[in-house]
Design a protein around this nucleic acid. Sequence first.
DNA 1: TCAATTTAAGAAAAGGTTTTCTATACAATA
DNA 2: TATTGTATAGAAAACCTTTTCTTAAATTGA
Lengths: 334, 334
Amino acid sequence: MKKSTIQDVADLAGVSITTVSRVINKNYPVKESTRLRVNSAIDKLNFRPNLLAKGLIQSCTKTIGIITPSIENLFFSEVIKGIDSFIRPMGYSTILCHSEGDNKSEVDMIHNLLNRQADGIIMIDPRKENIDSGFIEDLSKSIPLVLINGFYDGVKCNYILNDATSGVIEALNYLLGEGCTKVTLLRGKHSYSYDIKEEVYRDFILKKSDYCKVLSIDEGNDLKSVNSAKLKVISALKEKKSAPDGIICCNDWMAVGALHAAKSLGIKVPGDLRIIGFDNTIISQITEPDISTVDQQMTILGQLAAKRIYTMMTTDDHEIQKIFLETKLIIRNS
Amino acid sequence: MKKSTIQDVADLAGVSITTVSRVINKNYPVKESTRLRVNSAIDKLNFRPNLLAKGLIQSCTKTIGIITPSIENLFFSEVIKGIDSFIRPMGYSTILCHSEGDNKSEVDMIHNLLNRQADGIIMIDPRKENIDSGFIEDLSKSIPLVLINGFYDGVKCNYILNDATSGVIEALNYLLGEGCTKVTLLRGKHSYSYDIKEEVYRDFILKKSDYCKVLSIDEGNDLKSVNSAKLKVISALKEKKSAPDGIICCNDWMAVGALHAAKSLGIKVPGDLRIIGFDNTIISQITEPDISTVDQQMTILGQLAAKRIYTMMTTDDHEIQKIFLETKLIIRNS
DNA sequence: TCAATTTAAGAAAAGGTTTTCTATACAATA
DNA sequence: TATTGTATAGAAAACCTTTTCTTAAATTGA
């Protein structure tokens, strides 16, 4: 079944393509009788307007790209749903790209989005390398760009949405208050969101204690990180003198890994070891015990990013904004 | 920074746009010296070819659309990764759409993909209503379409990839073998994959037992289903006479819900109640006890779908194929 | 009735590529 | 020399819309 064009519709309805366009876009008065004729022609031919042509002439595609490192972490799923919930009703559609935490993929995907003439891009947890190289800063000069969790002070040129570092402090205060004396941080690589947490952790813990230890696994967002975290924590727990009695994990997957590590060694949680996760995804609720975690308000994070990019796309307000969102520690049984 | 076009590049390099096009696409010999000049002009102007224009003229966008009900279920994540792992290296990019299990969204997204001139569409667990209405069958006449888990015999016009129903039988055999006498099935709505499982369950169980009971929750793929499943199972377990001693859950989220239901009532798993999930996602490994589940080979499922759609897009082999994949019961401690 | 205004609809340009067809320059062959 | 062949590169059409500019027809006002 060959695709029909606006010309076919025009021929069938006995009008010009201009008129068909007007009927479709409802942006110009058309006599009722012709409107009906055109519409029935559209139905008969099953006509679908070619967005490539439309986008080409309007130089606007009503599309935003979302780049996420992973689709295996509910943190991202929730953020994405937040973005969608705001931007869809505004008539935009989204193109979701997952880079699997790969540098090059991330760049390729951005290029692809640019080539497709996306109107804006939201990046969740962009790769550190791509920030450091200046790539992202450059990018933000050529297209409305909002980063989620990609904040660090050095990047001045980007409008950045970021949840506060307050979560780490809240978690630390809680653990110290519960009597922990050896609190460690478990983090992943390649994302500034981990760096910030580490920085805050170090600054804060050194004021209160002389135990300061950071565990780092190779990745952080995919499923493999559960096991990596487990292995990493097992080896930390095996160290006689310096084994931690509290772990703050940079996301809930890692926290699950830590929990399993403790179990495998017969270490009681929360008796001998306390674990705190990050994100408050549902997986922190389904383990035994369920895991205390820092809520990140993912939906709101996404909505704010969407709102901001919408403003940038539709007005000439392109100034750089940094919005910080509150976090909240959810106490459970770990 | 205004976007530069192929004309700008041509002007700067002192050649025609034809030549620039040839340099970019490497589909025609160009003298080395001009090639260099053109390339440096491209770099200088930071030129990015407009895919709208290219797609328009080639009537091919090297794009496939993926429609999934949810991005909150690792089953889908794995399938999607499988698709990507095959189709990306072939030079295609993917547009991922999540319908949140909404009928209308699903249709809208398909229309959007058609309007964008996607070259093919893969649908995971398409909505029952859209199959029943004939919409999907019609669709498959106008674009290469592959369904994953959308199989039922009535749909003759679609090429369908589907994992075997053998999983249900395997699970049933196992539970009966372990001495269960009241095995129920917990399912969701609006997807044929649940219908098939129910059908197989009914056919099989009635031959072996006179206990046949199906529990159904409103949705099945999002996070809310954990809680819905829990509530549904709690009320089933409370029924004195007919409380099940074995539950087959149509995905791992539901199995988690069922497990929590049992816990909340103080019912021992697997002692008093056995639970089997579906999908073998990592969440079936992180609960206590970990959950026996039916592995669905999601990655392969995705790869096969991608491979099939690739063939359909690049050759004139458009015949309807139905591929069935083996499942495997993974025995754990539930 | 005639001019002026309003309404409805068409013609053609534009958007940025690819592709077919054509043209030039030069070398090779007879 | 005349002919053929071979690189190399340009001109122009094509892809399918939207949009600006016109035009024709219908309505209004005096």
